[in-house]
Design a protein around this nucleic acid. Structure first.
Ligand SMILES: [Mn+2]
Ligand SMILES: [Mn+2]
Ligand SMILES: [Mn+2]
Ligand SMILES: [Mn+2]
Lengths: 217, 217
DNA sequence: TAAATAATTTAGACTTATCTAAATTATGAA
DNA sequence: TTCATAATTTAGATAAGTCTAAATTATTTA
């Protein structure tokens, strides 16, 4: 098995790989709140274990086995988040830190039973897809509200920012996962957006918010 | 907060304190599968943190704050074991190792919600009492079958041995928690015991088994 | 009560994961 | 293309937790 630190590095590299295909030492350091020199040390260790492709100064990518481990950690993270919200009634902005601990519980049998117990949920409380027990999942095509135009409509299906502040703001505006929205107006001056929620309430959101709210068309 | 290692030491000292009131270095080493010298190092650390009373060569006992931490770990261990058996359908011999990991999940809010979700169970799958959120619990007076005499009857309420081998044997004999039993005969030659389960099946158990099966009268 | 033996502690070393400071390599602006 | 700057790696420390081997203290036993 891998240590807790190794698992966190692999997960971080996996997430950072979504953007570019080679991840830099500094990116990893920033995402794990650690120093670049610590990252270099760990990269050597992960390369020795054949979990990453690493050549000095060139950044890293996950090998298939590294990716498999990362996806499994993410599966566990998202299933526990779903459990916390659906079974223990936590709010979607409260569960991330707990799941950061729970994702390291090792038993595969446990997580598969948990998956079954919750009836194989497809998405976590933030709209992220939950990999199945073989690590497979499909990421639906989501667009930020900021990429839509007037009269476009769709369903709120994810968030880019997972901070409590943002999620609580969305709660207050009733901009929660699953809600249907339609774009009413885009203010050119500041790129803020007016939208209508399920044919009722109208809300006016800033460009910042529009950038971080993801819609399935 | 305390490290995982510190928590395991406190829990071990707590359990060993049930017998005598001062726990020895070697006892702790044996229970944690480590070496006496490692234990000594940790005892100094725990004493510095005022979690144990320790003077060289004299063994240790928990301070009130050390005991509070230990009981909390035990609460978490037993609640997770209950969850695994009652919600995820694991067998009582399968859950201990998973709970050893889960007991270190730190959130108190999480464990209190889990407690509520399961409707405040009083005992874990092995019959051990589950401390409430204030650390309070009552240990019922239990006697091993080996301490009973012919015609005594009672309810199976706990086990001394938690190994898979023993628990699976009990399952096979239908000697499970909650079953009512009555002593039919005690064989003097080898101290084995014949007992009747809920007025039906008769089983013959060895002295060894009789010593490890606990009854509430 | 004095050895012998057992229990415990100390000394010194190792591993993992981290850090700061210094050295090296890469990059991009002039 | 050259050099200043940014990114990355190396060197050397530190802390937690563990180990083996040696030293110390306590306990038994004769
Ligand atoms: Mn999360
Ligand atoms: Mn999530
Ligand atoms: Mn247990
Ligand atoms: Mn138990």
């Amino acid at each position: 098995m891998n240590t807790l630190a190794e698992e966190n590095y692999l997960k971080s590299i996996y997430h950072l790989s979504m953007g570019a295909d080679n991840v830099s030492t500094n990116q990893i350091a920033a995402s794990l709140n650690t120093k670049a020199s610590s990252v270099t040390d760990m990269l050597k260790k992960l390369a020795d274990k054949a979990l990453i492709n690493y050549t000095r100064y060139q950044g890293v990518s996950l090998t298939p086995s590294g990716e498999k481990i990362a996806v499994n950690i993410i599966r566990k993270h998202r299933l526990w988040e779903y459990f916390l919200v659906e079974k223990l009634n936590f709010k979607w902005d409260e569960v991330h830190d707990m799941a950061e601990e729970m994702e390291h519980i090792s038993s595969a049998e446990l997580i598969d039973r948990l998956d079954e117990f919750m009836d194989y949920p497809q998405h976590d409380p933030h709209g992220e897809p939950i990999p199945d027990c073989n690590g497979r999942f499909k990421s639906p095509e989501l667009k930020p509200v900021s990429a839509l135009t007037v009269n476009d409509q769709g369903i709120i299906s994810g968030v880019r920012d997972h901070t409590s502040a943002f999620l609580q703001y969305l709660d207050k505006q009733q901009l929660t996962i699953g809600k249907k929205i339609a774009i009413t107006e885009i203010i050119e001056f500041d790129h803020s957006v007016v939208l209508q929620i399920e044919n009722k309430k109208e809300v006016h959101i800033s460009r910042e918010v529009a950038n971080n709210l993801l819609i399935a068309l």
